[in-house]
């Protein structure tokens, strides 16, 4: 260090090796990826490089969608689907959050419920559809039940994990100030578990959309799922894809909505 002349000629900047691992918003990238995929499919199907039996032309799918919209059928399908999604997810997620919190707070509930949840988590809920039809009838009841059941388990698991992760020193603090049990749960445990609950919500809602199609397999005249299933059984690929695109868009909307809620509720995070 002291002998500067000895090191002359080896001057260079320190190699940079930091950065990364910090996602930051890049809004346009998502759109570009979508656009490239669609353009590729359009170009492939037009030039015959992709046969029309493999993939419908995106422009045809768009036309089908336009027809659907103009005939007013779109909303006839969308409204019942959305209400099933909403009711089913509402029931499943609220029950799931409540049970998850109880598991997080009470050792007996944990000992009793965790194995039960582990047992029902891997059951393919679609397999139980006939059972739900027997229990809740062929009407809306069985559809709500299927979606509720499917969203319940992931919500429970996410919620009790989130409660377990609440900083214990904050709870001790609450106790040391003489806060009541209920205050501690409401003002410390719940907000502290909110990040985990909301990331569980993302998964649960995606599962709800998946189950929507299954729920509409039986006895549904209208609904996006019914529409897709009908198109599928006729090998009407344009309509099938139009339906699938609606579900995808629904998924994106849900994800954006959860993102907004997160930003609103979790602004305190660094």
């Amino acid at each position: 260090m002291s002998d500067a002349t000895a090191n002359a000629g080896v001057q260079r900047p320190v190699a940079y090796r930091g950065g990364g691992f910090a996602p930051s918003p890049r809004r346009w990238v998502g759109f570009v990826v979508f656009a490239v995929l669609v353009v590729l499919a359009e170009w492939g199907t037009r030039s015959g490089w992709i046969s029309p039996l493999t993939l419908p032309k995106p422009s045809d799918v768009l036309d089908t969608f336009g027809d659907l919209y103009k005939s007013g059928l779109l909303f006839q399908h969308l409204v019942p689907s959305l209400s099933r999604l909403f009711m089913g997810a509402l029931i499943g997620i609220s029950l799931g959050v409540v049970i998850g919190i109880l598991i997080g707070l009470f050792s007996y509930v944990r000992a009793g419920m965790v194995p039960v949840v582990a047992a029902i988590f891997p059951i393919p809920k679609i397999a139980l559809l006939p059972l739900f039809v027997i229990w809740f009838g062929i009407g809306e009841g069985s559809k709500y039940a299927l979606i509720a059941f499917g969203t319940f388990t992931p919500t429970v698991v996410a919620t009790y994990g989130a409660v377990d992760n609440v900083d214990r020193t904050l709870i001790r603090m609450g106790q040391s100030f003489g806060l009541s049990w209920w205050s501690i749960v409401r003002k410390i445990v719940l907000p502290g578990a909110m990040p985990g609950i909301l990331s569980g919500l993302r998964i649960s809602l995606a599962i709800a959309i998946i189950l929507l199609v299954a729920a509409e397999m039986l006895g549904a005249e209208f609904g996006i799922g019914a529409y897709i299933l009908e198109a599928g059984s006729l090998y009407d690929l344009e309509r099938l894809f139009a339906g699938v695109v609606i579900l995808s868009v629904l998924g994106v909307f849900v994800s954006v909505a959860v993102g907004l809620v997160e930003r609103r509720l979790l602004g305190w995070r660094t």
Binding site: T169, L170, M173, S176, G178, G192, L266
Partner: peptide, 18 residues
Amino acid sequence: SLNPLTYVFQDFALLPWR
């Protein structure tokens, strides 16, 4: 005196959302 024996914690123990 609302809470006669009151703690001050090493790691502050503030609720980050308040």
